[in-house]
Write a protein that binds this DNA or RNA. Structure first.
Lengths: 343, 343
DNA sequence: TGGGAGAAGTTAAACGTTTAGATGCGTTGA
DNA sequence: TCAACGCATCTAAACGTTTAACTTCTCCCA
């Protein structure tokens, strides 16, 4: 399809293809005269090196694979856009590209990774949404195939990762609520199977303990990241007797925070005044909700960039200066958690 | 990296590499005996054909490039997730993958496409966010390079596209409002430079005309797809004298609809009751807003799938049965546009 | 003057497939 | 008996690069 090859340039410039290659890659001394002639010819013919051929020769693809679970219609992925952009940009900077791939069903996930690894379709993977005993981590580690994860897994598995410190983040949010005078603070948490859910929850527990505030077990509601489940859980929280009813809710995602806010409205409470709520992710929509949602902003662009930098180092066999990166989220305070809030 | 090649299998099975290839690709008659031996050997050695080598031979990449403009922090892309998933899935079905790539700045956009085309990094492109005089369409058409667009462009340019019928969609939304008894209906539109903005706006105008309703020019507010701009525009609409103040607003996106809703609240109006609002996109969040937002749902999965199907046909030189596909959005009615709405 | 060094360029192998064409062999029918 | 054919398999070229190894030439110094 492309048409003009290195052979054409060589013939036209009256040199061997090796010389053309040397000129174009600056990989060997070539006389100024020849160099100019080759460059001129290449430009005139509109020559561009064929990537596949180069890849075959170098036996690499300069491609990184990335896959993620699709969101159901009632859920959204607040970071996907910026995350992909950040990765793609960082990859391009190093001469790589990001290949997105799906897996038909969740059972095929591992097989899909294995297939792409074995056929040499990519040089490495970026994993996200890792969890405990993540099979992808195990499989890729076993095969010595390059990868890096957004998120941690088993503590005794040694692999490179970048993560956002959800524990510190949620602790900050909880401390913020405590500083606002709240004493009975509930948490909309995730099922115990979720590792990052555990990290985030522990941040809440730490803050409560550090402030010597008792935690009523009923204040910890575990649901999936689903609005309606969070709504129902919040409803239960708000229906407790007055002396045990929380005045603030720390939600582990913005979507769950929205469930809490909506439950408050429906309970005749004014969120932000009668019930403080905080979220996680700082989705673009958070600032436009009513009330605007206090949330923890993840440094997604940096996560993406760090992931790619690490992966490039791995692929190129460089030693990793920092195989584990824990980035801090930023607490963005808005009216959902502060009574007298001025935009 | 991969290790085991077709040569290893051939040696181990005691046949030539050609025979192995024939067996694996079913491309020529091979005796049942040899076939079994080769298959068994390949399986035992864990052989997987190297994709790059195959691609070089076939001089194709089996990759489709897709790029999109990143959303600024105060905006979100409600369809990206499902769109990418749909494309990736359809592509995988045909043996292709989706390569995402960024461009440093908007000035580099065209150059980036050209570079990827000329170096043979992809077999084709999916464009989105096309507009009038879209340089990408022109450039790729001129070069005869395979591509398909999500969205139309100049009417006299002949190229394959899939689009969602925004005109009919917005007409449906407007008719819905008219059916609810509204007479003074405003439209939060886009700048005139936006092609799909024009389509959508014309749907509004058509519905108004068909119902013999006059359109006050002041009812058409043009802003970018930005919450705060839409908010300000709505504020202007609501501050008109009572006999000219609209009782309903058709917004061209959910984000703009949210701006209208927030403006209504701040104006002391109850959206859904005092001001009907409709959006576009049916973002996952739409159903959880207060009030839940009436919106137009784009058949994104089908768009992605149709795009890929067309692109595969182009790349493989098959005739296109349907080079132009206009899909219908679905009006999802919720409380933001209906006074007595039961969830 | 002979030889070594270095510059400039060429040749050819390699990367791992696919596939057109050649080869060899057994079968069949005239 | 032999040509014709078909089947199974192999050989080798091709895809478009990169690069190790080799050749040639010039220059310089002992």
């Amino acid at each position: 399809m492309a048409g003009v090859t290195i052979r054409d340039v060589a013939k036209e410039a009256g040199v061997s293809i090796a010389t053309v290659s040397y000129v174009l890659n600056n990989s060997r001394n070539v006389s100024e005269d020849t160099r100019r002639r080759v460059l001129e010819t290449a430009k005139r013919l509109g020559y561009r090196a064929n990537i596949i051929a180069r890849n075959l020769q170098a036996s690499e693809t300069r491609l990184f694979g990335y896959s993620w679970r699709p969101s159901p219609p009632d859920r959204f992925n607040p970071i996907l856009d910026r995350f992909l952009q950040a990765m793609a940009e960082a990859a391009a900077f190093h001469g790589y590209h990001v290949l997105t791939f799906p897996f038909p069903t969740i059972e095929d996930e591992l097989a899909t990774y294995a297939e792409m690894m074995l056929t040499g379709q990519v040089d490495g993977f970026v994993l996200s949404n890792t969890n405990l005993n993540d099979q992808r981590v195990r499989c890729l580690s076993d095969n010595g195939f390059p990868f890096v994860a957004f998120g941690r897994s088993n503590a005794d598995w040694d692999f490179p990762w970048v993560d956002v410190d959800g524990r510190t983040g949620v602790r900050m949010a909880t401390q913020h609520l405590i500083a606002q005078g709240h004493r009975r603070i509930a948490c909309l948490a995730w099922p115990e199977t979720s590792l990052s859910g555990q990290y985030r929850l522990s941040g809440y527990l730490e803050a409560m303990e550090a402030a010597n505030l008792p935690v009523d077990p009923a204040w910890i509601e575990r649901t999936e990241n689903i609005h309606n489940d969070a709504y129902a859980a919040s409803w239960r929280l708000l229906n407790q007797p007055a002396d045990r009813r929380p005045s603030a809710i720390v939600a582990l995602t913005d979507l769950m925070a929205l469930g809490a806010i909506n439950a408050a409205w429906d309970a005749g409470l004014k969120p932000g005044r009668d019930l403080a709520v905080t979220g996680f992710d700082d989705a673009p929509i958070a600032r436009f909700l009513r009330p605007p949602l206090t949330s923890l902003r993840q440094p997604i662009a940096e996560v993406g960039e760090r992931l790619i930098t690490i992966l490039v180092d791995i692929v190129q066999g460089k030693p990793l200066s920092e195989p584990h990166v824990l980035l801090q989220p930023e607490l963005v305070v808005r009216a959902s958690s502060v009574v007298s809030y001025e935009e």
